[in-house]
Design a protein around this nucleic acid. Structure first.
Length: 217
DNA sequence: TGCCAGGCCCTCTTTAGGGCCTT
């Protein structure tokens, strides 16, 4: 039975950081990263690791994530972890929930590790605001509950949140296909939709479909 | 020891302000 997704759909990497704060520009550092590879409608691989940057973990963050200074003392160096995860994702497009946040740490930590960060990002939060305006809010946990996504483990840990985001991405692919009668919902289309005027998603899909006729039903 | 930001979007807007979302 043929897959409902385009076999040519590129693999994307869904990432999630745990950090000591909200801004690398203000001195916050990453404490954990996870990357989940998604291809043809399913998760096909993952990477996850704590990382030791030497940064101090505030009590609020320890309570939120369960990641303590004592745990990080035994973690591998941040630069080594970032080089490993960069090799794992390669040049694939990246996806994150509130991607502006993860993009800032991705760039900052890779720069510290001596690696370029040219990756394209897509944001499940921006897309969810357009696809699910009826949701009470667009936090990852709320959207996971709304769609009854599979439980992925403790929230606010990198791998669990990356897996939840990956499942949300797959849910949105299915919903876009259903809503707009498409046979596939490639990453490039979702990336366009996340920037589309909220009241003209159908117009954005039509324009995209006209340029890439293979996605239409 | 323990603070901190920024991109995006909406509207009471656009020469701005404030809320959301991430840790």
């Amino acid at each position: 039975m043929p897959s409902a997704f385009n076999p040519a759909l590129e693999t994307v990497a869904v990432i999630d950081f745990e950090t000591t704060g909200v801004s690398p520009a203000a001195g916050a550092r990453a404490t954990e990263i996870a990357a989940v590879l998604v291809h043809d409608g399913q998760v096909v691989g993952h990477y996850a690791s704590l990382m030791q940057s030497g940064a101090w973990v505030p009590p609020f963050i320890e309570q939120l994530t369960g990641i303590s200074n004592a745990i990080l003392a035994r973690a591998p160096p941040a630069a080594r972890v970032m080089r490993e995860v960069a090799a794992f994702v390669g040049e694939r497009p990246l996806v994150a929930h509130n991607a502006a946040f993860d993009r800032s740490f991705w760039r900052a930590e890779l720069q510290r590790a001596g690696r370029d960060a040219p990756h394209r990002f897509a944001c499940t939060m921006l897309l969810a605001r357009r696809l699910y305006p009826e949701s009470a809010n667009h936090r990852l946990g709320t959207l996971a509950a709304l769609h009854r996504l599979p439980a992925a483990g403790r929230a606010h840990r990198a791998l669990a949140d990356a897996e939840t985001t990956a499942n949300l991405l797959l849910q949105m692919q299915r919903d876009v296909m259903l809503r707009f009668a498409l046979t596939s919902a490639p990453h490039a289309l979702l990336a366009k939709l996340q920037r589309a005027p909220r009241r003209d998603l159908a117009g954005c899909v039509a324009n995209y479909a006209a340029l890439a006729g293979e996605v239409t039903a």
